[in-house]
Amino acid sequence: LGECILHTLLAGVTALAWLGLGSVLLAPLGHSPDRMLDALNRIGAGAVGFALLTFAAGWSGLLYPAAYLPVFGSSAAVGLVATGSLLRGASPPHFRSWPPWQLVLLALLGFYVLLDILSTCAPITSPDALLYHAADPARFEKDHRISEVTWNSSSYEPFTVEMLVLDGFLLWDWVQGAFAPLLLALASLCAVVGAASRIADRATALLAGAIFFAQPFMSWEASSVFVEPGIAFAVSLAAWNLFRFVRHDELSALILAGVFSGAAAGMKYLGLIAALTLGVAAAILSRQRLRPARVLAFSLPAVAVALPWYVKNAVLTGNPIYPYVFGGLNESAAAELQDTRDMFGHGHSPLDLLLLPFRLLGDAEAFDAGEFISPLFLIFAPLVFLAPRARRPAAVIWAGVILYMVGWFFATQQARFLVPLMPVLAVLAAVGALALARRGEVGRWVAAGVVTAVLATGVAVSSVYAAQFVPVVAGAESRRNFLHEKVSYYDGVEWLNRHLGDDDMLLTDNWTLLYLDMPYITFGTMGDLLPPEAGPEQTRSFVRKHGVTHVAVLKGHENRRRQVGYLPSRLLARIPVRAVTSRTLAELGPPDEMLIYAIEGST
């Protein structure tokens, strides 16, 4: 638990460092008159600044704590001074004057923050993090440089958040890296609350914050080394700055909206779609003031911030958005990638589109954990039209939301990819719920009853999720035992770590890469490097090219076992292993074996 507290304190210093660097970067733009927006703008700009610095340092082979810590320390010192000036003259909130239900919402948010910190303090076990969100930064840290991760096409996505995870690794350890996405989630919570308080009032702000953050889905997102909390932060800051531009005609706010739209596009291809949607909404909202200079004020910073990631892909693969649109994957990998994307949801017909809202509420498991998304977004966001003053802007915002949803519906129906919409929908839903409550007695009881019931359900589900991490964080369970329970095929990973060293090169079809200590390569997450149907010649040349000394494949993967048969190999071990199909429910897949071979004649 002491370590957890130390991690949390260091996360606080990280936020100060982001604030410090952001203060320096945004100094030419001057201060926003809105102090809270000003602080968040600086934190956001600082985070993007650190990510791009790490990206540049990585390609220059400078990923050493000795290079990172001085920048981190001096930025944190600037951040401390900036905090002093931001807080000067600010009056503390008078909680005694708040109605009890608002205090309950505030306490609920505090509870979720603690729950998410606790979950983040446990060793990293989320499958996508083990495959690349944490595994790739860990590899870069070990090599002291960024290199192309050819076997996983997802590694070509823009990696701003992964760079911040890498910063955490340089600062201390893997858990510290996992705090970066949590910090971004907390920052997006502040942005949602802040923006809603400016658009409406404190009641709306607290309710919007609870709808956005007090849900099991966000606990999972914030504590699993995922990228979406970062996109949510960037989108919410872009939207808040756009709101300021539309209301006050501040050019600096428009520039910042561009910066954060570009930041979203620099976090994942999904963020690019969110940024384009924001651009369209911005153009419609400010159509009467649309001039070429203003279009440039938004789009130039957006392009500048996002560009490095797309240029890197163009240089490495010839396709700036590899492996999409312009291709680049082999045929079977491209087909498997498409199959994986089509696997989620209920279908793509017009009827499916019509049924989408109802399925998201009542049958959302097929959307990949969609059942853990709060229903309050969908229940109350349409009710925003009950508030007369909100109708016109809400119509434009809803048009943007629907545009994004249609894109999501036809691309890949994964619930996670709806997170960029959540900040905006949370504000709409809070305005809608309060509009219903203010329309009459029945509306008040219905709104209060539904919000209370949903938030209470969320607390129960989120507590069940977080409970699995309590023993290991509290020191009542060993790290090794925890990893055995939560990480797929961990017995095999342990065997490999015991018997292989830095001079070996492992080829594996296992996706649990983070905890492998030796150099490794995979066949490709989708068979990107060596397709499953590849024959003897291709297999042998692949193994030769990469200097493979050992192969570890699952017994159930017959194509890979056939390919091992083409090689001069000797079976070293058969390790009984299990896949973890649900960490929370401790569900395991059927018994399998990891077959480990030595390649004869390899050195």
Partner: peptide, 30 residues
């Protein structure tokens, strides 16, 4: 008045759908 009634109806339907989903979730866990 009509939009108010429609809003209450939508909240009732949507909440019932979510309740149905949560019942299934609890049953699956059980």
């Amino acid at each position: 008045v009509r939009s108010y009634a429609l809003a209450v109806l939508w909240v009732a339907i949507a909440t019932a759908l979510y309740g149905w989903q949560m019942l299934h979730l609890v049953r699956d866990i059980g």
